[in-house]
């Protein structure tokens, strides 16, 4: 993606670790050389052999984002998304790298499938497509994925996203491998027995609509189990799309204790509530479900 020709990005709002500033950015050989207000004056015009100029007035200029959670659906559901289409969307949104979740068919539980995803990403050539792999074969929660083979082929992130790993034995063994191989497990925290048939948060709104509810405790219980397993095994663990206030509290506590855990929260979970579903609008039906005012 890098170009030998130097590029000057002019007049944008540069956002980086030190904040926001109105500045120009000079890039050469794919590397940022200088950031500062009005530095463009120092360089020759484009038609006089100077750098290529890009007007970024009223734009935000920043380093590329990384999306840790992308469902590219190739193979299996290519009518919904392909690696190429997903790459296009990513690059348009300012992303330089995306992690491909393993919910494909076949699932990303073997070196062959993982390599296919990586290759398709390279073929699209727009962003770095980083394949994750399953924790268990076909995300079925029964048999461990070939961690050694996958890790040897560079896979560092493992998840059964969409399915929480229900069996504590499987999860404990997976963590033993994770510690040994220095890889990270990502859990979709949901005790499935507590969410059978559920379509929205279990609470006032679901009680009123007569819809089977998805209790917060289904997330909290699995999170608590995994935190204890991390404490025991020392494996690195990332918790996907947490949705309850209690979950955030638990992760904060664990981090304070020095456990090697991280977590993510999505914008809709910290800005919208289950009230949005009171008119049965399925646009707001998400997994995990939108919670309550106390959680946002």
């Amino acid at each position: 993606m890098s170009s030998n020709k130097s590029i000057l990005i002019i007049g944008g709002t540069v956002v980086n670790v030190s904040g926001e500033v109105l500045a120009d950015v000079m890039i050469d050989q794919g590397v940022v050389q200088e950031v500062g207000p009005n530095i463009s004056a120092k360089y020759a015009a484009e038609n006089e052999g100077g750098p290529r100029r890009i007007d970024a007035t009223s734009c935000v200029v920043t380093s590329a984002f990384v999306d840790l959670h992308t469902h590219l659906r190739e193979n299996g559901r290519v009518e919904s998304e392909t690696i190429e289409k997903g790459s296009r969307a990513a690059v348009l949104g300012g992303y330089g790298a995306v992690v491909a979740m393993p919910n494909t068919e076949p699932a990303q539980d073997s070196v062959a499938v993982v390599e296919f995803v990586r290759m398709q990403g390279e073929r699209a050539g727009l962003v770095d497509v980083v394949p994750s792999a399953c924790i268990t074969v076909n995300r079925a929660g029964l048999q461990l994925s070939p961690f050694h083979s996958l890790a040897q082929n560079g896979v560092t992130l493992y998840t059964d996203d969409g399915n929480g790993v229900q069996d504590p034995v499987i999860m404990r063994r997976a963590m033993e491998y994770a510690k040994e191989l220095n890889i990270t497990l990502m859990q979709h925290c949901e005790v499935s027995r507590l969410t059978e048939g559920a379509v929205m948060h279990e609470g006032c709104c679901s009680s009123h609509l007569g819809l089977p509810g998805w209790p917060s405790i289904a997330e909290v219980l699995m999170l608590q189990r995994d935190l204890e397993l991390v404490r025991e095994t020392g494996a690195k663990m990332h918790f996907l799309h947490l949705s309850t206030a209690r979950s955030v509290e638990l992760v904060r506590q664990a981090k304070n204790e020095g456990l090697p855990v991280t977590a993510e929260v999505t914008p809709h979970h910290f800005s919208l509530t289950d009230e949005k579903l009171s008119g049965f609008n399925t646009v707001f039906k998400v997994n995990p479900p939108l919670r309550t005012m106390e959680d946002v």
């Binding site: 279990e202 006032c204 009123h208 209790p215």
Partner: peptide, 9 residues
């Protein structure tokens, strides 16, 4: 209904 047991608001 769950709200009657768990959230007396």
């Amino acid at each position: 209904p769950p709200s009657l047991i768990y959230s007396d608001t």
